[in-house]
Amino acid sequence: MDRFVYLTFDGLSRGAVFAAFALALVLIWRATRIVNFAQGAMAVATAYAGFSVSSATGSYWLGFAVAIVTGLALGAVTERVVMRFVDHSSHLNGVVVALGLVLVIQGGLGMIYGNEYRPAAAPFSRDAFTVGGVALLSRFDLFVFAAVGAVCVLLALLFTRTAVGLRMRAAAFAPDVARLLGVHVGGMLTLGWALAAGVGSLAGMLVLPTELGLHPNAMDVVFVSAFTAAVVGGLDSAPGSVAGGLVVGLIVSYVSGYLGATVAPIAVLVLLVVVLLGRPGGLFSRGKARTV
């Protein structure tokens, strides 16, 4: 039972990171109908920038802020310089360009920083508190929950309580109609990509200090889990992506704990296939499934 409780909290902590990353994927999907396969590589690139600043200045938090700001900027630049010029007549075009970005970013990071694993520092202890002899959460886990929770609340407020958020939603659902209402759709897309990449960077900064470490390909496995989380929740559903992230986090934790860490990625892929076959619109989708 103690192990189950520990794995549950561990799964929720992992799941919170997957949720943030899945949220980033959903933000871009809803706005552009593109699954941003470059999200992981972009997050790693900003994490390298952040940890470089941290090691140069000795301040983790300055590096953390640099990573998030770099993420926002990288997202905006990616949309403005690359994605805006993709022919959207086929979904495949955006996917191919995103995969191309992955290769470019990972290759560039390898050339600049090398391909060896580097440790990524955590701002808080990762030793779990024990209550009644049962290991529960570490300070770092609490930081993860707080950071992801804050991002979810801020995004929810942005999209439901502000004129900019309303315009972003309108631009995402029907860009031509939104234009007629005075919405600068291009600006909203740029903002959406910036926010998504910023959230992706946050997820990177939260997951890299765990078992992953810094490496140009470090987020590949996380991407698969987060993509599964987004599909489980429904690519059109922001709350669904958060719930999907927690579900995937728990599955990864339980499977790793009871069957071995090497089985966990297989379990995630099985979940992805099951959801795609059984409910392709996701567990939280309202409408019919979209075909990609």
Binding site: D176, R179, L180, L181, G182, V183, H184, V185
Partner: peptide
């Protein structure tokens, strides 16, 4: 299109 409302057209 996105300048129409500014021009007073809906």
């Amino acid at each position: 299109p996105h300048q129409l409302t500014r021009l007073g057209i809906a």
